Every structure is written in C-alpha cells, then in structure tokens.
Computed example of a mutant assay.
Amino acid sequence: MSGSSNSGSSQGSPNGDDNPAAEFATVDSGKKQRSFLRELPILILVALVLSFLLQTFVARVYLIPSESMEPTLHGCPGCTGDRIVVEKIGYRFHDPRPGDVLVFRGPESWSSDFTSTRSDNVVLRGLQEAGSMVGLVAPDENDLVKRVIATGGQTVECCDDEGRILVDGKPIDEPYVVMDFPFEPGIRTCETDTRSPRCFGPVTVPEGNLWMMGDNRSNSADSRYHAGDELQGTVPIENVVGKAQFIVLPPGRMGTIGSPDIQGE
C-alpha cells in the first residue's frame, strides 16, 4: 500500500515529467501559434486592402521633386525634398479655389519630358504596379504640384504698374511669392523695350480648367510656359489628384500648407 501511495505522489508532483498542467499549457500554446499563422495572411490582405482604399480615395503621401514651389515646399537640389499629404475627399464636394496648392496629373504638353519609372521586365513591372496600388511605390504618372491662380471663366494676366498678377482686372495678393523675375517701374515693365519676364496674357481660363503657377516664379514651368498649347496652358479639373494639406517630412518642416484667399471679395 505504501509503495502504491509513493508512486501516486510521484505522478502528481509539480516537478514530475507527466504534469498535466504543463502538458495542457504546451498544447494550448501550440494551438495559438498555429491559429496566428493561419490568420496572418488574412491580416496582411486586410491591411493591403485598407491601404489601397486609403491611398485611392482618402489621402496619399507625395514627394516634392522640384524647386518650383519654394519656399512653400522644398525640392531644391541637394536638400531633403518635402513629403506632403494630399487629401482627395474635399474636391468631391467643391471645385478647387484660387490659392489652393494642388497635386495634378500633367496634361499632354506638360508631360513631354516625363520618363516612366517602371521596369522593362514584365514581372518587375507587375510588382511595381502592385506596390503602387497600396502606396509602397510611387505612381507611374507625371504628378505635379502648383497653386491655383484663376479658375474657369476668369481672365488672368501680368502685370499691373506694381508688377502684380491681375485676375479679372484686379491685382491679387501673393504673400507666398519670394522669388520672382525683376519688374522695375519705368525701367523694366510690360511696356518697356526690355520687357519683364513676369509678363503674360491676358488668358481667359476655359470652364472646368485651372490656371496653375509655382510659388517660385523665376523657376517654374507652369501655365505660363504652356500657354501656347491646346488648353492655353490650363489644367482640366479632372486631372486634379487632390489638395496638398500637410508637410510630414522632414521633421523640421512639419506643418500645414496655407491656402490664402488671394483674390478677396
């Protein structure tokens, strides 16, 4: 009897090899690990679908590759280009307004120098396209960023006696313009023999289109540069991707992107 009792005590000991609680914990842990591995592909798929929906319909991050919007947005050679959040919802309810900073797909004449970033290899190109759909790879299109100066039906030109842009005959307020072509009253204007490079127009913007200009006026191939094309240099609203709202990188330049009412009442 005592031998049998000792044997039972040994099997029930917490330190025994046949501890039921330890065996149950091991089995339970194994089940959880297998369950997680089965769920992992579903979780990845859900994350990719959510990313696709977010990038397509809500907002996307874009890199500024040129200096045409300085100093509002940085893209200068040798510096860290700004990464901006472009919101895509607002313009489903209203059209772009003068003063808004937009990202848009360049019309045909704006895209003559655009070179595709996609690989010639069919497999790699497919992977790049898939990555673009979920925001891991930049879209293969000529995406540009400029500011709206005039909208459909308005007439835009430069300059008045002070070198300002006129919209429907009224000068607009542009506090964001720091770098511009020289304009010296009585010396270099739109009427002098040596004409100021600021001068253009007048151009009446077709309905459904926008007159777009970079904030860095002395270094921006914008609507002025393309004024001789079939759209008079304007950009169709249907080409608009969204409104630039925030600078998210680099950290030292994080903040909102202003959209002042440049035309007033």
Rank of each mutant, 00 (worst) to 15 (best):
G258N: 14
N6E: 15
G169L: 02
V86I: 11
R125D: 15
G169R: 04
E141Q: 10
I257H: 00
S13R: 06
A59Q: 05
L63Y: 12
D113A: 13
A244H: 05
I89S: 00
G126M: 09
P251C: 02
S218V: 14
L249Y: 15
S259E: 13
F183P: 07
L53M: 14
V58D: 03
F52T: 08
G233R: 00
D229I: 03
T115V: 15
G75Y: 05
I149P: 01
R147H: 09
G252A: 10
P96A: 07
T115M: 08
M179E: 11
F36R: 11
P206Q: 00
F183S: 00
D17G: 14
T256F: 09
R92P: 04
L40W: 15
L144V: 12
P175M: 07
V58G: 01
G8C: 06
M133C: 08
I257L: 13
S196I: 05
E157T: 14
R164V: 05
V205N: 01
L48A: 15
Q232C: 02
C79F: 02
T256N: 00
P96L: 10
L48F: 15
Y176C: 03
G135Y: 00
P182R: 05
F24D: 12
N239L: 02
L48E: 06
A22G: 13
V167K: 00
E129W: 08
A227G: 01
L63H: 11
D193H: 03
G153I: 10
I257E: 02
S5H: 12
D161Q: 12
